[in-house]
Amino acid sequence: MTIVFERTKGLTDVETHYCPGCTHGIIHRLVGEAMVELGVLDKAIGVAPVGCSVFAYNYFNCDMHEAAHGRAPAVATGIKRVHPENFVFTYQGDGDLASIGTAEIVHAAHRGEKISTIFVNNAIYGMTGGQMAPTTLVGQKATTAPGGRSEEHSGRPIKISEMLATIHGAKFVERVAVNTPANIRKAKKAIIECFKVQLEGKGFGIVEVLSTCPTNWGMTAPEAMKWLEDNMIPYYPLGNFRRPEEAE
């Protein structure tokens, strides 16, 4: 009898506050497992954002730093420049990274900052109760887009991975999803590969993780996973946009 799946040491044993079926929990697990498998948990320093994952500093079993909204990449830059030998990552939502924090993420990539970013894209502001995010899809309803996002009023949603893939310092850019076991396993591979880019000192790496928000989408958890498949993946195609080899 061998254990093939158990709770990773990369997470603390604190129960998360996330809503039932929210995929933040899955992504936290993947990040925790990746750090343990790469043997970097003991030298990891994570930066938590403001948003649903604002309490991530209670969940990752390593030194953590709570950043101001959107500023995690700058905070991580300060940490990495002081401790270049440590493994430094940011964990951010789409309100944090794709809205108030766009300058910080673009410039972290532009500098080739040797940090890794996990970007959770659930197309909405979760913590504050369902407002429209820069990643909210056209037609998708939100409390600040009651009739659904209209392109004429507030443009089309931002494709962060494609945008960052144009920046030389971004040595790893991949978009994954966590709505099925198969996609979750692929997501973990991408996270590990992204972390390795930092550990090999090559430069900036980011994994955009399409994620659900059952509560603010107004769906059950299984329905949300289906909605992600049918609506988000077509607009946000999964795949790798940049790997170190082609990023020379």
Binding site: V4, F5, G25, I26, R29
Partner: peptide
């Protein structure tokens, strides 16, 4: 069958999976 699909998709790491080799 110990495929761990359930544990993989669980957001709260509720499930531990063992397999008889």
């Amino acid at each position: 069958i110990g495929c761990a699909n359930c544990a993989t998709i669980c957001p709260d790491v509720v499930i531990t999976v063992e397999r008889f080799k």
